[in-house]
Amino acid sequence: MLEIKNLQVNYGPINALKEVTMTIEKNKINAIIGVNGAGKSTLLNTISGLVDPDQGEISYKGRQIQNIPVEKRVKLGIGHVMEGRRLFKDQSVHDNLLIGFYFRNPKEKRRNALLKINEIYKQFPILGNKQNQMAGTLSGGQQQILIISAALLSEPDLLLLDEPSLGLAPIIIDEVYQLLEELKSKGMTIIISEQMAALALRISDVGYILERGQVVKKGDRSYLKSLLDSDGLSSVYLGKAKV
């Protein structure tokens, strides 16, 4: 599905990503785990095209995409839910969905915009009830649902989610995760970034641990879980316990 080879991104003198190589298989949930500043967002931004890599290749469905602009990658089926619950807070819920639908779909499908959006309202009645409210007035969880819904309107094959659980109550995180699992069952490939390892491992099939821009560990869920249980991850987050 997605092949990343030797990816390197520099912000001025800092190496945000160093020689990152990964193979993302179709129809799997992949977790990128790491602390703040480890390079998770940079990695996702580079895949979606918001950040240009200094080196390396990204191929998607067998096609080199590192030189294609963001808007075109979207049309190729890469959806991106950015970090920090970004949406057009000064526009209504409905307009956010409309923008999410309109520009990513070919002309013939645009006629169905309202139909598609109504489907979303059916699935998430809360959005339907608040469709004329400014997006900024929604609660954090509702905003996250709205963002993911907007991303889904383009029917992506590969969905990138950057810390979707950030600042959400546990019960809403459960909801979001359930949604992701549903999407996976419909055949979508998902890459999710998370600060909290245990959380990410709840749903992911494969995990990558990123430290200072490098992949330090990778493996399937059971391997990473064993790492978590043996305190190997705890120290990454909470420091080496002083006894």
């Binding site: 659980s165 998370e194 600060q195 390892a197 245990a198 959380l199 909470l238 316990a241 002083k242 006894v243």
Partner: peptide
């Protein structure tokens, strides 16, 4: 204290999620 934090359930939950 730092030692207390590393054993505190709230903190572990906030950072590790469980």
């Amino acid at each position: 204290s730092v030692e207390g934090m590393q054993k505190d359930h709230h903190v572990i939950r906030a950072y590790l999620g469980v």
